[in-house]
Design a binder for these strands. Structure first.
Length: 309
DNA sequence: AGTTGTGTTGAAGA
DNA sequence: ATCTTCAACACAAC
C-alpha cells in the first residue's frame, strides 16, 4: 500500500513522536518475517533508544543509539501505529486474543465491552503482528493484514549493503534525482514502456501504482508509450510531475484510498484529489472522455486516452 | 461458492 | 539480460 508519500509521512511523524523512546519489549506472532530471527532481533533492539527515522525508497529505517538500525518494509498492507495511551482494560494479551478471535465467541465477548468494540472498529487494529513496547509504556505496533511486510535489524553502517536497499535506484525525491539522471535512465531503457519503468524500484525508488497513474495523467503521456518515442519536452513534463505529485502527496499526508493510515491511525488526504486512479469509467477531469483502466504487466493502470498521448 | 483483484516485490521460468 | 508469471497472504467484491 504505502508508496513514497505515505512512507515519508510515517517518517515525519516518527521523528516528531517516537524519538527518544527506549525499547523494553518486542512481541511477534509472525516471526518468519522478522530478520535475522526473532531472538536475534530482540537481542539487538531491546534496551536501545530511538534516535531518528529516515527513508530510502519505500523502506523505513529507524536508527537506534546502539549502532543498530531497524529496517521495515510495509509491502501491501502494513501499518505502523504509535499508541501513546493504552487503556488499562486493553492489555496487550487481551487485545491479541480478541484480534485472533475474529468470529468466535471470544469476539462476541469483545463486543460486550464498548472500549474493545470501538478499538476493533478500526480494521487496522485487527491484524497486529509485531509490537514494540517502550519504557514510557507507549507502543509501536505493526499491523499487516496480508503479512507480506517484514522487519529486521542491521548495523547502522551496513544499512546500505542490505540487498533490498543496495539494488534500489535513486530515490524519486532525492536531490540527486535530476532531469539529467532521468534522461540517462531513459537512455539506458529504450525498449521499456514508460508506465512500467516508473514502477521499477531498481531505476527510481518510491513510485507505486497510485502515483504512476497520477504522474502520467498530469504529464499528459499515455502510459503505454515506449520510452524511445518520448520527446525532450515530454520527458521534462514527466520529470516535473514526478517531483510535483510526490511532493504534493507528502504535503497532503498520502493517499488513504482503501486502508492507509498514519501512525495515529488517521487517514491521509490525497485520495480527495486523485484524477485518474480508481476512477475508471468516470468522467475525465481534463476533457469530456472517460477514464480507462487497463493492465500493464500484472498491474492496473488508469489513464485518459484523450488527454494522454 | 468460486473467481478475481488489491497500494509490493522476489524468485522462478521462458 | 529481460520479460512474464507466480507466490507470499487475507479479504472484499463480483
Amino acid at each position: 500500500m504505502p508508496e513514497l508519500p505515505e512512507v515519508q509521512t510515517i517518517i515525519n511523524d516518527l521523528n516528531k513522536k517516537v524519538v527518544g523512546e527506549q525499547i523494553v519489549g518486542f512481541w511477534s506472532d509472525w516471526k518468519k518475517n522478522v530478520r535475522p530471527s526473532f531472538v536475534k532481533f530482540k537481542k539487538e533492539t531491546i534496551g536501545a533508544k530511538i534516535t531518528g527515522a529516515r527513508r530510502i525508497g519505500k523502506h523505513i529505517i529507524i536508527d537506534l543509539d546502539n549502532n543498530n538500525s531497524i529496517l521495515i518494509h510495509l509491502k501491501m498492507s502494513g501499518h505502523l501505529l504509535y499508541k501513546k495511551f493504552i487503556d488499562d482494560s486493553l492489555q496487550l494479551t487481551e487485545r491479541r486474543s480478541f484480534s485472533e478471535a475474529k468470529t468466535s465467541s471470544l469476539r462476541a465477548k469483545a463486543k460486550q465491552s464498548s472500549v474493545i468494540e470501538n478499538y476493533f472498529k478500526e480494521k487496522v487494529n485487527r491484524y497486529i503482528h509485531h509490537i514494540f513496547s517502550f519504557e514510557s509504556s507507549s507502543t509501536l505496533e505493526f499491523s499487516d493484514l496480508r503479512k507480506f511486510g517484514w522487519l529486521g535489524v542491521v548495523k547502522t553502517d551496513e544499512v546500505e549493503i542490505v540487498k533490498e536497499i543496495k539494488k534500489l535506484g535513486v530515490d524519486a525525491l532525492d536531490k540527486n534525482f535530476t532531469l539529467k539522471s532521468f534522461k540517462e535512465i531513459l537512455e539506458k531503457k529504450q525498449k521499456s514502456i514508460i508506465g512500467t519503468l516508473l514502477l521499477d524500484q531498481s531505476l527510481i525508488a518510491g513510485i507505486g501504482n497510485i502515483y504512476r497513474s497520477e504522474i502520467l495523467f498530469e504529464a499528459g503521456i499515455n502510459p503505454k508509450r515506449k520510452t524511445s518515442t518520448l520527446k525532450e519536452k515530454e520527458i521534462e513534463r514527466i520529470f516535473k510531475q514526478i517531483k510535483n505529485i510526490l511532493k504534493k502527496a507528502v504535503k497532503m499526508r498520502g493517499t488513504s484510498d482503501v486502508d492507509y493510515r498514519d501512525i495515529e491511525g488517521k487517514k491521509g488526504n490525497f485520495q480527495k484529489v486523485l484524477k485518474v486512479y480508481r476512477r475508471e469509467k468516470e468522467k475525465c477531469l481534463g476533457c469530456k472522455g472517460l477514464v480507462k483502466r487497463e493492465k500493464l504487466g500484472q498491474r492496473s493502470i488508469f489513464y485518459c486516452p484523450r488527454c494522454q498521448k
